[in-house]
Amino acid sequence: MKVAASIKNFLLSLAGFAAILLIWQLGVSFTSVGNLLPSPWAVAVRFVTMCTNTVGRKYTLPMHLLVSLRRVLIGFGLSAASGIVIGIAMGRSDLIRAIVRPLFELVRPIPGVAWIPMAIVWFGIGETAKIFIIFIGGFVNIVVNTFSGSRQVDENILNAAYMLGANKVQAFFKIVIPSCVPYIFSGLQVGLSTSWMAVLAAEMVSATEGVGWIITAGQQNADMPQILAGIIAIAVTGLALASLMRLLERVLCRWRVRGS
């Protein structure tokens, strides 16, 4: 039953994709949409040539993706490390919360891309500026989620640990941190996708390589198949990153799963 249902759902989702492609193809073939949009077939062909031939001076599409991914991993890694530490510190220490929280609440509504001009002034147009933008993109979500997780640690369970003889340090690492993990993961999940958006924004402003650059270069040459092929690469990579993160969460949060 279960297998049959999942096969059915898979076929239905394929049907959805096929319908969109069909409407797209028909629109391009029989209406004036064709002047504004290349056909799906043309995009697919371009996607394949971009994978084999260089786009721009030296990189193929997969190489551009790797450049962008490298930036994301560094920026996101930094925001995860600092965001988790700051989130927990804010959650568990009244002093730090009193000092940091108002500052954080003020910075929080600023979209990451608003920092692009400042980043360029501070760091020039090199890698550092882009990594800074990505860092800001992920940081906020990770702090917010980690903070709310560390505020919701069950005091009765903490007391149970103290009753059994745990000291403050042991209680922190054995009780506070593990009970925050599910919250940290939802922060990392959102943070990773905003980091992935931020790298594109950073690359669209100033870069000579990366998937963001592919899109802006396509725009400058009025090369629509290149823009669309770039967008598809972005979508697939973003999906893959999110799935990887979910997999990691499933492994680390096994204890929350009820089923056999």
Partner: peptide, 20 residues
């Protein structure tokens, strides 16, 4: 204050859900 020489069993168990 609390001490390991006094053990406690709770109505809501208060188990550490992340440990087996």
């Amino acid at each position: 204050g609390p001490s390991p020489s006094r053990g406690m069993v709770y109505q809501t168990t208060n188990l550490f859900m992340w440990y087996n």
